[in-house]
Simulated scan of single mutants.
Amino acid sequence: MTGGPRGDDGGVLGRRALGRALLARQHLLERSAATPADMIEHLGGLQAQAAPQPPYLGLLARLDGFTPEALTGLIETRRAVRIALQRGTIHLVTAEDCLTLRPLLQPLLEQQLRTTYGKRLAGLDLDALAVEARALVEAEPRTFLRLGTELAATRPDRDPAALAQAARCLLPLVQVPPRGLWGRGGPAAHTTAEAWLGRPLDPVPAPDALALRYLAAFGPATVADLQKWCGLSRLAPVLKRLAPGLVTFRDEQGRLLYDLPEAPRPGPDAPAPVRLVAPFDNLLLSHADRTRVLPEAYRPRVMTQNGIVLGTLLVDGLVAGSWQLSEEGTGARSVTVRPFTPLGRADRDAALAEAERVLAFAGGDGPVRFEEAG
Results as ranks from 00 to 15, higher is better:
244 P>E: 08
255 R>N: 13
248 T>H: 12
252 E>W: 04
247 V>R: 12
247 V>L: 13
242 L>C: 04
250 R>W: 03
245 G>I: 10
241 R>P: 02
259 D>T: 09
250 R>H: 15
257 L>I: 08
257 L>V: 06
239 L>C: 11
237 P>C: 02
241 R>F: 05
238 V>R: 02
249 F>D: 13
246 L>W: 14
249 F>T: 12
242 L>M: 12
254 G>L: 07
247 V>A: 07
240 K>H: 15
242 L>V: 05
248 T>E: 09
255 R>G: 13
235 L>F: 10
239 L>A: 10
251 D>M: 03
240 K>G: 15
246 L>R: 11
258 Y>V: 04
253 Q>V: 10
259 D>L: 08
260 L>N: 10
258 Y>E: 11
245 G>L: 04
258 Y>C: 07
251 D>R: 02
259 D>E: 10
244 P>F: 08
240 K>P: 01
240 K>D: 15
251 D>P: 01
251 D>T: 03
244 P>V: 04
245 G>Q: 12
255 R>D: 14
256 L>C: 02
252 E>K: 01
241 R>L: 08
234 R>W: 05
253 Q>G: 13
256 L>E: 13
231 G>F: 01
249 F>M: 10
238 V>N: 01
246 L>C: 10
256 L>R: 14
234 R>H: 14
256 L>A: 12
233 S>I: 04
236 A>K: 14
249 F>N: 14
254 G>A: 10
259 D>Q: 10
260 L>E: 09
237 P>V: 02
236 A>C: 06
244 P>L: 03
244 P>R: 08
248 T>I: 04
241 R>E: 02
237 P>W: 03
234 R>Q: 08
234 R>L: 04
251 D>Y: 00
241 R>T: 13
236 A>Y: 15
233 S>R: 15
258 Y>I: 05
253 Q>R: 13
232 L>Y: 00
259 D>A: 12
258 Y>N: 09
238 V>H: 11
257 L>F: 04
259 D>R: 03
249 F>P: 01
251 D>S: 01
258 Y>A: 12
236 A>W: 15
238 V>E: 08
251 D>C: 01
252 E>D: 14
246 L>Y: 14
250 R>V: 09
243 A>L: 10
254 G>T: 11
254 G>M: 07
236 A>D: 15
247 V>N: 11
257 L>C: 09
249 F>K: 09
254 G>P: 05
260 L>H: 11
235 L>G: 09
237 P>I: 00
243 A>S: 14
236 A>N: 02
253 Q>I: 00
244 P>W: 04
239 L>S: 12
232 L>A: 12
247 V>W: 06
232 L>H: 01
249 F>R: 15
256 L>V: 13
258 Y>R: 11
251 D>V: 08
237 P>S: 03
239 L>M: 04
231 G>K: 03
236 A>H: 12
231 G>L: 07
256 L>T: 15
252 E>Y: 09
245 G>D: 14
256 L>M: 06
242 L>K: 07
242 L>F: 12
239 L>I: 06
241 R>G: 14
258 Y>S: 12
234 R>P: 00
243 A>W: 11
254 G>I: 02
247 V>T: 15
259 D>H: 11
245 G>E: 14
259 D>S: 05
244 P>K: 05
251 D>W: 00
254 G>V: 07
232 L>W: 00
232 L>E: 06
233 S>D: 11
253 Q>H: 13
241 R>N: 04
237 P>A: 08
232 L>I: 10
257 L>M: 04
260 L>I: 09
247 V>E: 15
248 T>Y: 01
231 G>E: 03
248 T>G: 15
